[in-house]
Design a protein around this nucleic acid. Sequence first.
DNA 1: CGATGTCATGTCATCGGTGTCATAAGAGGT
DNA 2: ACCTCTTATGACACCGATGACATGACATCG
Lengths: 364, 364
Amino acid sequence: MATIYDVAKRAGVSPKTVSRVLNGDAPVSKKTRETVTAAMEELGYVPSHAARSIKSNRSNLVGLITGAISNAEEAVTSAGLPELFIVQGAQAVIEQSGKTLLISDTGGRIDRVPGLVRTFQQHRVEGILYVADFHKPLDVKLPGDGLKTVLVNCFDDRGTPAVVPDDEAGQYHLVRAVLEAGHRRIAYLTLASAMQATRLRLKGYRTALSEASIDFDPALIHATDLFGSPGEDQLVWNAIDSLLNLEARPTAICCGNDRLAMAVYGILRKRGIAVPEEMSVVGFDDHRLISEGLYPTLTTAELPYSAMGARAAQVLLNMLSDPETKQQNEPIRVSGQIRHRGSLVAPAASTKDNIIDLTGRKER
Amino acid sequence: MATIYDVAKRAGVSPKTVSRVLNGDAPVSKKTRETVTAAMEELGYVPSHAARSIKSNRSNLVGLITGAISNAEEAVTSAGLPELFIVQGAQAVIEQSGKTLLISDTGGRIDRVPGLVRTFQQHRVEGILYVADFHKPLDVKLPGDGLKTVLVNCFDDRGTPAVVPDDEAGQYHLVRAVLEAGHRRIAYLTLASAMQATRLRLKGYRTALSEASIDFDPALIHATDLFGSPGEDQLVWNAIDSLLNLEARPTAICCGNDRLAMAVYGILRKRGIAVPEEMSVVGFDDHRLISEGLYPTLTTAELPYSAMGARAAQVLLNMLSDPETKQQNEPIRVSGQIRHRGSLVAPAASTKDNIIDLTGRKER
DNA sequence: CGATGTCATGTCATCGGTGTCATAAGAGGT
DNA sequence: ACCTCTTATGACACCGATGACATGACATCG
């Protein structure tokens, strides 16, 4: 590969002059610039990042670690990987800033993290983004001592800057949309109750209901552990079973995520219940492969992964350019949109009766 | 960040000795090694990749470009992104070889590729992996002249080494599985007919049928353009409509991908047809989010993205370590597994009649 | 017309490592 | 006791870029 000396020789100038043409940091006569530019062109010269980097002591690199940032030994669930959108969002911002993003994937094995961080340090990254696969607290001490760090989709209690989805607001607005469609009996099949998202979203669900003066009914809530655990189908089936057997049957079901909604479609239909005519269904995540691919398409709340990645990158860039600014202690919450699609419609008249006459007998 | 000089001073030795401890390329007395190691530890020293790299002229970096490697101005379809698995597969292999993978995403804008390649060249990558979002021919001249290149999920006619999925074998084995379940009338909703995958898979479909002595029936084939084009739902609906109106109705439907299968589930049920009891459905891709999430779970052919990424990385590493070995001209085809799940069962007795008596009146 | 400023360019040292060569201290052979 | 060989270590140049500083050629100004 051609060096700056090759270019200099070819153009008949000193290397320093070539450097000046490259960086435009000192005046160069038009004629010289053209000669040099031509020489660079002919030799296919591209400046060496490494050489610049040792001299300037600035690497212009940012590292990102994804795949499994957690403490527990969780099942390796490579099913969804929408975290990719976080990576994309981050990369767009980093790249636009003129820096380069180094991406490493743990492949689900958290014990690989220290090695990856070491590699990053060899490259003298200026900061690190840690991306978790779903919203979770973190109590591991991450390696990378002096390094500027931003957590994405997770947070710790040491005040490390973090960017997380606003689960509560998302569910709140989603339930409001369901209410506005005319529903009053709204079931909620949550994700595992231990999950951060579940706690927050349940809060949003309850707030929306209470604002509409609807009492919270525990009979409408079922936790259905996800991640393809063996008994999952059965769990969902049972949950729907008990919902359908309620005296006052719900007319809409909120699902913990789009994947669950997809299963619910199948089960409802197996039970002879048409979606959305007899039962509205909404999801969460706006995993477009599902939400746009399902028939009917799925109304859902966006999990703003791309925006979170972008935001985290901005926060990190700020920390780099402005080392003094103190970060706030609370994680930054990013809100997503509500996506209105085909699975949410007004409740059917017959079921409406069902709601008004709460003590009435249920049909079918 | 501490340098090798800092370590040397602290340990009371010369920088070169520290270097020897690091690389173990010359004998160092046990005592010195321990002193030096301790000094490195105390200072948190990590050798600078950049400094090594300029001296040795070997970057140990490999670049990967993903997001949109194509010629046409296609719709930016960020729906699925299973290419991530290609990236993961590649990264595992590259990382294991001691090199580092630089990943760049075009974000669907092909005009960004030259800039990304230039960045890669600044980092003196030793080779580049180009990853396409689906199996396609390529007739753009990729930048990065002298650079070793491997195409993944795409191929050109210049003999650039390439790794692609074995679509034909995949569909062949899938249809064989359907045949073995007892089906004889097997419909096929293909992807857009212009796609490489469609051509190859159709070939596999026909081979499997002909081996079972079943005549190819064009009435069972429908191309249903995907990628969420506006009229798509209607197209699929119509296709299924005409299949159901056939005198000899199919008992199984092959879908161009899992996403399409998901839509077919919904449409069939809307039409009152139970899956899989009255109609078996199989997909393609093994997009696990869908194939395992659907109810019933989906029998499908794996698109071996992770294996393809790994394979491509191996090919590239070979080219780097062994610059002489000529590559074969044909793309390397990687085969995937057939995933047997709930959506494929033996045809029902009534529909079996339907098959045996090809001229009989169809019920319902 | 000499002093001063600006422009255009070159010289040299330096960043953090490593390759080459030199050197000193023992070990072993005769 | 002398020579040779190995082991352990250091001095120094160099990789490809850039910062600090120097220099020569004009332009400008009082």
